[in-house]
């Protein structure tokens, strides 16, 4: 019984800490000026809309005949998940070091608060854009919402565990911060956001399917277009990679947590 009571108390504190940090993140990132918190999803929305317009203008369906708007929304929204989460976790500790004077604030809370902001923003923008564009008649609603949600969840899980891992690694060596930008840039075209696997030559399909991200994006696409495309994915593979990444992230968290000196 004592352990249950301890656990529920720990959970209550954890919630308080992440809640307080979440608001603190929103305040420093978006402030109270002009549209304030609305930036949380307006920012990713502007990106997605921009890409949609570009792709529509160039008629670049990247080797398929599925609707461009839906293709861009599903593709680029997923990029926001795996790219922005690590970006926000790299060098996340430094600006929060002074808050670590409070015993309850730990490295994991800082990461989780930022991931919540990032993941929440991307998810909101994804939903709002899908609804808005469908209302405008530029795309149709997903054929299978559950599939989309599951694919999205798996991508978010990948983003979170990868972000915490990279965020911790950045505390060990500043190389990570320098390398992340080129890596994320080169990952973009192969991530599955800008093509569907089925349109690639079979030999190349095998190569891109090594990337765990592609599986998640493919499932989201199947949820959207269902019968119109032939999606290639293996959720078992993505789940295994996610689990391994999560484990590595937690190991790194322990290492970094012991080293951090509050300012």
């Amino acid at each position: 019984m004592a352990t249950v009571a301890n656990l529920s108390r720990a959970w209550a504190i954890q919630r308080r800490v992440i809640g307080a940090l979440f608001i603190r993140e929103l305040l420093t990132r978006f402030g109270r000026h002009n549209i304030g918190f609305l930036w949380l999803f307006v920012e990713p929305m502007m990106f997605t809309v921009g890409v949609t317009i570009l792709w529509t203008a160039f008629k670049s369906t990247h080797g398929s005949n599925i609707p461009i708007t839906a293709f861009a929304v599903s593709g680029y929204s997923s990029v926001l998940l795996w790219r922005n989460m690590p970006s926000r976790c790299i060098l996340a500790i430094q600006p929060n070091l002074s808050l670590m004077y409070h015993r309850y604030v730990k490295v994991i809370d800082i990461f989780l608060a930022r991931l919540l902001v990032e993941g929440g923003g991307a998810t909101l923008s994804f939903i709002i854009l899908t609804l808005f564009f469908s209302y405008m008649g530029w795309m149709s609603l997903p054929e299978d919402v559950l599939k989309v949600a599951f694919g999205w969840f798996m991508l978010a899980w990948f983003g979170c565990s990868f972000a915490i891992f990279v965020g911790c690694l950045a505390e060990e060596t500043e190389l990570v911060e320098k390398l992340w930008h080129p890596i994320s840039y080169f990952l973009l075209p192969v991530s599955g956001a800008a093509y569907i696997v089925d349109a690639l030559p079979p030999a190349f399909q095998k190569v891109v399917l090594i990337l765990p991200l592609v599986h998640g994006v493919e499932l989201v696409r199947e949820g959207f277009f269902g019968s119109h495309i032939r999606a290639h994915y293996d959720m078992g593979y993505l789940a295994t990679i996610n689990a391994v990444l999560t484990f590595m992230a937690l190991v790194m968290l322990r290492r970094v947590g012991a080293k951090v000196v509050p300012e």
Binding site: A12, R16, A20, R24, T28, P95, Y101, H102
Partner: peptide, 30 residues
């Protein structure tokens, strides 16, 4: 219950206002 160290540095996030920092700490301690 033990306070945080009341020291020259630390405890406050310098980009936030005094009031926001106070709110943060109140939320933190429930």
């Amino acid at each position: 219950t033990v306070s945080w160290p009341l020291a020259f540095g630390g405890a406050f996030q310098s980009a936030l206002t005094g009031l926001d920092n106070m709110r943060f700490i109140c939320r933190l301690y429930g």
